[in-house]
Amino acid sequence: MSSIEELKAKLDKVIVMILVIKLFSYLVEIKTENIIELLYMAIIVLLVSVSLWLEHAKNNGLD
């Protein structure tokens, strides 16, 4: 793998982690008013976790 491709892969990981941190900081500030909003927040966390796991599996050849 060329050094430019490695740099792109590392930059992608950094961008994804920044987005995840921003999302979680946003979720911490939200005041839920009913159970549906809490369920939506749980679904968001689940989807982000699954997407990070799939990216990790793809990069490590686990699939």
Rank of each mutant, 00 (worst) to 15 (best):
E6L: 08
M17F: 14
K13A: 13
K58Y: 01
L39G: 09
L54Y: 03
S51D: 11
L27P: 02
L19A: 06
L23M: 14
L39M: 14
L47K: 06
A57T: 09
Y40N: 12
L23K: 03
E55P: 00
I21S: 03
L39V: 13
A57V: 08
M17Q: 12
N59M: 15
L47H: 05
W53Y: 12
S49P: 02
K22P: 02
S2C: 04
A9R: 15
L39F: 12
L62F: 01
N60Y: 03
L52N: 03
V14T: 08
A57M: 13
I43W: 04
S51I: 10
A9H: 05
L54E: 11
M1L: 10
S25T: 10
W53F: 11
V16H: 08
L27D: 02
L11S: 15
S3Q: 14
K8H: 06
L23Q: 07
L52T: 02
I18Q: 11
E55Q: 09
K8Y: 10
E6A: 09
M1T: 07
S3V: 02
S2L: 00
L7Y: 05
E6P: 01
T32C: 08
Y40G: 06
E29R: 15
A42S: 14
E5D: 14
L54F: 11
I21Y: 00
E55F: 05
L52H: 05
E33T: 13
K8P: 04
I15F: 06
S49E: 10
A42Q: 01
V45W: 04
I15N: 06
K31M: 02
I4H: 14
L11W: 05
L54H: 03
V28N: 10
E5F: 05
Y40S: 12
L7P: 04
S51Q: 08
I30C: 06
I15K: 09
L62P: 03
A42T: 09
K58T: 01
M1N: 03
D63L: 15
E29I: 08
F24C: 07
E6C: 01
L7E: 09
L39Q: 12
N60I: 03
N60M: 01
V50F: 08
A42C: 10
I15G: 00
E5P: 07
L38C: 06
V48D: 00
L7R: 14
K10H: 06
S25F: 12
L19H: 03
D63W: 12
V48G: 00
V48Q: 01
K22Y: 07
I15E: 13
Y26S: 15
V28K: 14
N59L: 13
D12K: 10
K31Q: 15
L54I: 08
L7T: 08
V48N: 03
K10W: 00
K10D: 00
S49Q: 07
S51R: 13
L19W: 00
E33S: 06
S49W: 03
S2W: 03
L27I: 05
N60F: 02
E5H: 10
A57G: 09
E33A: 07
I44V: 15
A57W: 04
L52Y: 04
I35N: 09
V48Y: 03
V50P: 07
V14H: 06
E6W: 01
